[in-house]
Design a protein around this nucleic acid. Structure first.
Length: 472
DNA sequence: AAAAAAC
């Protein structure tokens, strides 16, 4: 086991790491620190939850010089929530070195940020849009940046984002260290990344080396119109402690969280159209356990470290395999096991194949739980509640009433009644959910030949393509 | 084609 003490780190950083409780390195830290501390560029592939933030945070804090009154480290993150989370962790790592860390992101009062930037924090963590805004206003000084990090880089270098990133990187000193981290590494992203970097060292944490343990991956074939009832069956059967349901669009997320609330689940939605205050409060409630089900677009797919998520349901299969990897990475963290269930409309089977190709793992097919199984799941939960109440509470105040009940009725009947009252019975309240078109059929290798022929035959008429959807 | 990201 390699420890942080084995590296040549400043005493102040070792002190902070000790306070956080970091002693042994994770694989990504062990393999990247020798290069990053030596000033080399790095392209690192690892999931979140593997200690990535400390892997770049330690060299970044190490590199800052308290005597220089200007930002020296810059982290760019794809979502606001991730920027906040990263800045909090960097703050902890830099605490004893007295390194100031500032997060700048959209949706927050810009005047407040400008005042904070005037104090010249040593490290800035930001989202691309707001960072550019500050650069144009000349309210941020990036002339002394010595080390820059692109976090969740596959997302950052995607179409649409790339121009922003390029514009930011162009304004940074050429004499700098660039670290790039990403959970997935498509060839296209790798090529783009190389343009910004100098002789980078590639570090890849293979999945068996990841501290992220096994996530059991399943898929269920279900028609669009049956999806919602299927979801509630799964929620009842699994009775997850904390679950995330991913939907494809913002409207979908609104409708789903509303529908789940109507059926008696404590659910709330999160997506990019909500105010930043609302986004943060939903996330906080979820982290505190005051919401059982978080319904989300891909805004919540990347990088967020929420511990204790037991189940991920992909209500809609993601279009990009990379997105799938990020989504299921929200569960099975910090040594816990996790379960991911992906809903697939029959004609979307081609996407499932693509995802499996990317992850290198097969998903096991399961069926929608039966009504009986759903009820059993809720009864199991009720029994757990009773067990917990017995071991955790002082029940002396209830003894007399309990004895009275038992003297009047059959003991099994008394307990059955208590169980019934504690069991959430399947709710069939009708709910409104707009019809979401399944993704267009994706041609798989098996049926490609025929589909090309058919396409020619009908001169590209869309409805014919449906017939060529993959079968499984 | 959707989502994220600036006002």
């Amino acid at each position: 086991m390699v420890k942080f003490q084995d590296f040549q780190l400043s005493p102040s950083i070792l002190k902070s790491l000790k306070r956080i409780g970091f002693e042994e390195t994770t694989p990504i830290q062990e393999q990247s620190l020798p290069f990053s501390l030596a000033g080399r560029d790095i392209i690192g592939q690892a999931q979140t939850g593997t200690g990535k933030t400390a892997a770049f945070g330690i060299p970044m804090v190490e590199r800052t010089d308290a005597r220089v009154k200007a930002p020296q480290g810059l982290v760019i993150a794809p979502t606001r929530e991730l920027a906040i989370q990263v800045s909090e962790e960097l703050h902890k790592i830099g605490y004893d070195k007295k390194v100031q860390v500032l997060a700048v992101y959209g949706g927050q009062d810009i005047q407040r940020q400008i005042r904070a930037l005037k104090k010249q924090p040593a490290i800035i963590v930001g989202t691309p849009g707001r960072l550019l805004d500050h650069m144009n206003r000349k309210t941020v000084d990036l002339s002394r940046i010595r080390i820059v990090v692109l976090d969740e880089a596959d997302e950052m270098l995607n179409m649409g984002f790339i121009e922003d990133i390029e514009a930011i990187l162009e304004k940074l000193p050429a004499e700098r260290q660039t670290l790039l981290f990403s959970a997935t590494m498509p060839e296209r992203i790798r090529q783009t990344a190389l343009r910004f970097m100098k002789n980078p060292e590639f570090i890849k944490i293979r999945s068996k080396e990841m501290t992220v343990p096994q996530i059991d991956q399943y898929f269920v074939k279900v028609e669009e119109k049956d999806k919602f009832d299927a979801l509630t069956r799964f929620l009842d059967y699994h009775s997850p402690d904390l679950a995330i349901v991913f939907g494809r669009t913002k409207r979908r997320v609104d409708e789903l969280s509303e529908a789940l609330s109507i059926r008696g689940y404590t659910a709330e939605g999160i997506h990019g159209d909500l105010s930043q205050a609302k986004r943060l409060s939903v996330l906080r409630k979820f982290k505190e356990g005051n919401i059982d089900v978080l319904v989300a677009t891909d805004v919540a797919a990347r990088g967020l470290d929420i511990s204790g998520v037991t189940h991920v349901y992909n209500f809609d299969i993601p279009q990009d395999p990379e997105s799938y990897v990020h989504r299921i990475g929200r569960t099975g963290r910090a040594g816990n096991s996790g379960m991911a269930v992906t809903f697939v409309a029959p004609r979307e089977m081609g996407y499932l194949r693509e995802v499996e190709k990317t992850t290198g793992r097969r998903m096991r097919r399961i069926d929608v739980p039966s009504l009986k199984e759903a009820i059993e799941g809720q009864q199991r939960l009720a029994m757990e509640k009773i067990h917990a109440a017995i071991s955790e509470n002082d029940l002396s105040l209830y003894r007399e009433a309990a004895e009275e009940l038992l003297s009047e009725s059959d003991p099994v009947a008394v307990v059955s009644a208590a169980l019934k009252l504690l069991t959430k019975e399947p709710d069939r309240t009708p709910v409104k959910l707009s019809f979401e078109r399944p993704l267009p059929a994706k041609r798989t290798a098996k049926n490609r030949k025929t589909s090309v022929k058919q396409k020619e035959a009908v001169n590209g008429q869309k409805y014919f393509r449906r017939k060529t959807a993959g079968k499984r």
